[in-house]
Design a protein around this nucleic acid. Structure first.
Lengths: 240, 240
DNA sequence: GGCATGTTTCGACACGCGTCGAAGCATTTC
DNA sequence: GAAATGCTTCGACGCGTGTCGAAACATGCC
């Protein structure tokens, strides 16, 4: 009935530095394999495994086994929220605070999720491609490229036959953390993103996952997918 | 620059069961003396003092020394928010969640803060008494009863001369946590609250700090202070 | 001034838990 | 089938820290 022991145990799980690093590394909602989290936290695989087991038991993480990898991700947005709130405590830094949310807004708008496009822009592009019939959603969280889609990619200078599919497929559906909708991932997503970068539609920030759209990019996005800058920029986050 | 060590240390402060109990006890925003927190946490005064010192250094608490007492309170709403978010983690209880906010709303509306009236209602009553000229704000967080006020209390059957003032005074200004405005505290606040209870204006819940207003109470509140039920009930919380 | 109360500081003990080495499973690759 | 990779389990070590007794400090009451 009382949540008092609860809050202490949840906090205890976050309290360990190694675990905190892992959780922060998962803040973007992506799933990561145990080994990567171990490396990020600077501990051995055994130690990381112990930590991940505890976070799992504590309900902070969920896990998906895929082959010999185990992918961990945050159990939900409430966990991410709690982590962010915790970050607001501490040295009581009055500064930043606003700049941080600025950066967060940028990230929410457009970012790189590994090496493919995510955020509001990523979802919008994916949705546009679906509406134009370039892609269709398939089972097992995949996308399939339609003949029209192959033609479009070709016209963009991307030869699909030269892209090596991963074991999970050529184009995958990746659940966008902030938007709660799928965006395009997998090898095709990676190639598309670097293509948009090379063509000057978007620009990647160095040392950040923020992605910016060039003026030319906005025109192209509207031409190809009907994405209007005003609409995309103005939409506020939808809180439950 | 990175908030990673930060979040771990903040979590570590909350992670200890004794500290967690203290923090939860302070969740309503009231300031409480160290001894009371020690008792609540079930530890000795020395242990509690150590904990409180750490929470203070960590920026989770603030302290005001008053006589030989030291009153601790949460450092701000962001701490309360973080604590509540932490409570949402753990056993992943999908239930409640809505019922809890219900209870929280009730508490926000009217509650007992120690033994005097607080919440939206407490603030409204205090504001009404100020507007009617029954009280005036004085220095050192005190209220002073005007001659008109003394007359009003007398007409309510409360003889002010029989109330023993505390060292800090007869009537004090207490900062309301949810409303961010002052309400009436001190011995006068306590006597007024029990008076309203005995006269049947309000009803105190047992085993909860929630206070309910009777139909007769609403009529009286409107007659005496111009407090209208619809207005007070409908007003939503103001978020920054 | 002297005693009582509320709180903090100091010191010592002991339990908890994070850490890693070694070994055990599961899966993929050759 | 054998080797390699990714991850988990087991066991032991050692540091960190929560705990309380004793004492010091501060304030209020008589």
């Amino acid at each position: 009935m009382n949540s008092q022991p609860n809050i202490a145990s949840a906090a205890a799980l976050i309290a360990d530095p190694a675990r905190a690093v892992m959780l922060v590394a998962l803040l973007d909602g992506r799933a990561r394999p145990a080994g990567e989290l171990a490396y990020a936290a600077g501990v051995t695989a055994q130690t990381a495994s112990s930590h991940l087991g505890k976070l799992l038991a504590g309900g902070l993480l969920t896990v998906e086994t895929e082959g010999r990898h185990r992918y961990y991700r945050l159990a939900g947005p409430h966990v991410a929220l709690a982590l962010e709130n915790l970050a607001s405590i501490g040295p009581m830094v009055i500064t930043r605070k606003k700049a941080l949310t600025r950066e967060a807004q940028k990230l929410q708008f457009a970012r790189c999720c590994y090496d493919h496009l995510a955020g509001r822009l990523g979802v919008a592009v994916t949705k546009g491609m679906l509406e134009k019939g370039l892609l269709v959603a398939a089972d097992n969280k995949r996308f399939e490229v339609t003949p029209i889609g192959a033609e479009w990619f070709s016209s963009m200078g991307l030869d699909l036959t030269k892209i090596k599919p991963a074991r999970a497929g050529l184009a995958r559906q990746c659940l966008d953390w902030t938007e709660r909708q799928h965006h395009l991932a997998g090898p095709l997503g990676v190639h598309l993103t670097s293509l948009l970068c090379n063509e000057g539609w978007i620009r990647r920030q160095k040392s950040s996952r923020v992605v910016e759209v060039t003026p030319m990019g906005w025109r192209k996005f509207e031409d190809h997918f009907g994405i209007q800058e005003q609409v995309l920029m103005k939409r506020n986050h939808k809180e439950a």
